[in-house]
């Protein structure tokens, strides 16, 4: 632990200005790729890979590993880091994820890398077990349920009722026909083929909407960065 207690150097205006300059220059280095691939872009790209891996590790270490594992296994020794844990009972059961975690890291040592499969077995089992039930409930049963809705809504005006019935029929027909399109065990010919073709149209409309929204998203992100650069040029803070 190194504490810069006497003067919080990194909160001074000079440190702040230096930080803004570094951030802005790194932004320009990434944008330089638009002209062509170049050493500045490569520098920024490689720096990004290194710092992001370390950042995620650090955050996971202080937010989960320390309070949720170390503090439960050795609470009496946490006084200097997490005083809240001192006095809590020791929970030996957490030796299990600790062991699995260490086993997972054996992947880095070729000779005993096979051991990591035990931890992978747990992770895969957990993901498969939870995904099985959650996807079945949320993305299958509930979706079928939501597709079968009453066409007539009591109290609605005639115009909105006609519109609503039409929309509900398009939703129902669209879902069924797009699913028909995904069914490749039967050749897409005749009536089956025509239904599949309508399914393609529905999927194309969905992809078009997705494209429109993707454009929207990317422009928003660009606006954010451009705004940052404009503030930097104006001399405003970060």
């Amino acid at each position: 632990m190194i504490i810069l207690e006497s003067q919080p150097i990194l909160t001074t205006p000079v440190a702040h200005a230096v930080g803004v300059w570094i951030a802005s220059l790194l932004t320009l280095m990434i944008f330089s790729f638009l002209y062509k691939d170049n050493p500045f872009y490569k520098f920024a790209e490689h720096l990004f890979v290194g710092i992001s891996a370390a950042y995620w590790m650090t955050v996971a270490f202080w937010t989960t590993l320390i309070p949720n594992m170390i503090a439960r296994l050795w609470p009496a020794h946490m006084g200097g880091v997490l005083p809240a844990a001192v006095g809590q009972p020791r929970e030996w059961i957490y030796i299990i994820p600790f062991a699995f975690g260490i086993i997972l890291l054996t992947r880095l040592v070729s000779r005993i890398a096979w051991l990591s499969r035990w931890a992978m077995g747990f992770v895969i089992g957990f993901a498969a077990g939870t995904n099985f039930t959650r996807y079945l409930q949320s993305d299958f049963v509930s979706q079928i349920h939501s597709t079968m809705v009453p066409l007539y809504q009591p109290g609605a005006t005639t115009a909105s009722t006609i519109g609503n019935i039409f929309s509900q029929l398009v939703v129902f027909g669209g879902v069924v026909s797009a699913l028909v399109y995904f069914f490749f065990s039967k050749e897409h010919k005749g009536a089956f083929g025509r239904v599949a073709r309508f399914g393609i149209w529905i999927l194309m409309a969905a992809f078009g909407a997705s494209f429109g929204y993707t454009v929207m998203a990317r422009i928003s992100l660009l606006t954010g960065r451009m705004n940052y650069l404009i503030q930097w040029v104006k001399g405003a803070s970060w």
Partner: peptide, 23 residues
Amino acid sequence: TAVMAPLLYPYYPKQMVGFMGGL
């Protein structure tokens, strides 16, 4: 984000009370 927004429409309104798509 707007990229994700179209994918979430099937959850509305039964499984999701409402949502904001992108900016």
